[in-house]
Write a protein that binds this DNA or RNA. Structure first.
Lengths: 338, 338
DNA sequence: GCGGTTCACTGAAACGAATCAGTGAACCGC
DNA sequence: GCGGTTCACTGATTCGTTTCAGTGAACCGC
């Protein structure tokens, strides 16, 4: 019995033949350009009968467009960034576009490689949460491709739009709150980033700490719950344990919770914890994690709107500044007397 | 000043011209086939000088391969599936392949559309966590493309491999544990899936409940923490509240925690909660979520190994059965006296 | 009834590689 | 010194679209 061949799919030529038109006419008809209504209908029908659908690869090669939007994440190990990526993917789908999600894993070199690959894949636009906002590559890419930055603004690049986190404000909010609660010695846990120049946010921590008269100690935590927990354990076990930990992402704060549990310390009685992001799980912990909320839905909507508009050829180029809010839960208490 | 043009990238023809070879020779040389060592070196050098890199789109059109692996998730709203997707993406990257991640969002129709799109994108392999394992499409796809299924096995499809969850065992483990703790009236919270035939796992719940003499009530919870919380609130507020909730994913269990907090009920004193998956956050809750652990790292490794082997042309076709383990934490207590 | 538009469509040339079927030259044994 | 291999490489074709530059025909106003 002749097994039904993996029958080759119909090409535009076959549709042309079936309708007695030229391939060019079929191509135009299916995209509703420059042809009579009647022909369009005829072509549609023939295409449906033959089960024809345009090959995206051939189309990309010829036209240079794919309908896809590249999404280059800073580090997907972070739960909040996972949520962000998922949210953007869904929002794009609602606009009939697809996200090509890649993960720089905190590595600037990888980030550059992946960005180039995305460009080579002919994405119609690129959303990037830059690890290294100062890389010259961005300017070069933005020359030919709509680029939207999330988080830090790209330096020297004519982007199609930016959703900038006001990290100065976020840091100030967090540190002032900790100070008001009486904390003076504070550990700052920031994600490890291999060989990037200091982020503006990091610098601002130092400046604000000075202004507020806080004694801070900056620790870098590798990504991943286990690794973060280890760093947090060391911090908690140190001779002069700080009274509070300011974590530069909720994921890191989770590591502090885990470390505290492991060492029999209580949050916030023994150690106050402050997060940054507001991940959905933060409200479920006991005590709830007090954190700096960046309105993830607003970020998703803004970024998607900007990139889609730019990919459609509109020329808005807007910078949206995202203002954080302090989400007060129970993880920061008064400084223990000790 | 002449702004540096978005200078067109070098093509294989230019490299050919620079080396005095034919484009064909360059193509072979860069892939290390059928050419002398010396020529390979010469071509490499010229390519580097011109900044030439093969265009992935043109390559895909001509060769039919892309180096990418498609990953079709059941529903990325689920945190565990987010972790899974992220893990697979990273594992593939370690093998110099890239994941094209798409989200069926629990919808069988969307799943079919996306699967076809992935095929059209010329992915070298497909990992799917099927919403509808019985769709005839799978058999058709598996005919020409290495398909690896995670979760439920595909029906009637000659897959390249399968990582099957022994859901019967998982369900039995959970229900027997609950029974042993004294629970008899149990709510079962299962994710909403639009118009899919009942999953084997769901059917098994009914069968096992009968065997164990349990009185179960099945509730479907839409994806998303907020939606799940609402369903859980209704469940907790009902006249004859069950003494335990068995949630078919940890994400759903989080909704029950949220609902309990909202209604002033305590876990496990007022309501016992049992999860399914073991997401990293489950151990951080208070009390820790008792759940059925599926060894996510093992699943990631197995799926990636199978799909990469198949994409490389090896013909292993293995079915790996994933056995769950009960991860006992504190969210299931004895049945309240009431 | 004549230049000028518009309209609906066509033919051929991209797009940038991979691949197939050679093709000469060098080398082999005998 | 002659048939047969192997080797390193070439020319032409292919992949399946889009798009550019026409091309006739119909229709327009005057």
């Amino acid at each position: 019995m002749p097994r039904s061949q993996p029958r080759k799919r119909a090409t535009i030529r076959e549709v042309a033949q079936a309708t007695g038109l030229s391939p060019a006419a079929v191509s135009y008809a299916l995209r509703g350009m420059q042809v009579s209504e009647e022909t369009i209908e005829r072509v549609r029908q023939a295409a449906a009968e033959l089960g024809y659908e345009a090959d995206p690869i051939a189309r990309a090669l010829a036209s240079g467009r794919t309908g896809m939007i590249g999404l280059l994440c800073g580090s997907l190990e972070d739960l909040w960034q996972q949520s962000l990526a998922f949210g953007i993917g869904r929002a794009l789908r609602d606009k009939d576009r697809y996200a090509l999600i890649l993960d720089a894993a905190g590595d600037p070199a990888r980030e550059r490689t992946l960005a180039r690959q995305l460009r080579d894949q002919r994405v119609d636009g690129l959303i990037v949460q830059p690890v290294d906002p100062a890389a010259p590559l961005w300017a070069q890419l933005a020359e030919t491709l709509p680029v939207v930055a999330i988080g830090d603004a790209l330096i020297d690049a004519r982007t199609a739009g930016e959703v900038v986190f006001d990290n100065r404000r976020g840091v100030t909010l967090a540190l002032e709150y900790l100070r008001q609660k009486g904390h003076r010695r504070i550990a700052v846990l920031t994600p490890t980033r291999s060989s990037t120049p200091d982020r503006p946010a990091d610098l601002h921590v130092t400046a604000e700490a000075e202004r507020l008269g806080l004694d801070i100690e900056v620790l870098t935590a590798p990504h991943g719950l286990a690794a973060t927990t280890k760093v947090a354990c060391a911090m908690l076990g140190s001779e002069a344990r700080p009274s509070a930990a300011f974590c530069f992402s909720d994921s890191i704060a989770y590591g502090v919770y885990a470390a505290a549990a492991e060492m029999g310390l209580r949050v916030p009685d023994d150690i106050s914890v402050m997060g940054y992001d507001d991940h959905p799980m933060s409200g479920l912990l006991t005590p709830g994690l007090t954190t700096v909320d960046w309105d993830i839905d607003g970020i998703v909507r803004a970024a998607v709107r900007l990139v889609v508009a730019a990919a459609d050829g509109q020329n808005r180029r807007r910078r949206i500044i995202q203002a954080p809010e302090l989400r007060e839960r129970g993880s920061v208490g008064p400084r223990p007397l000790s």
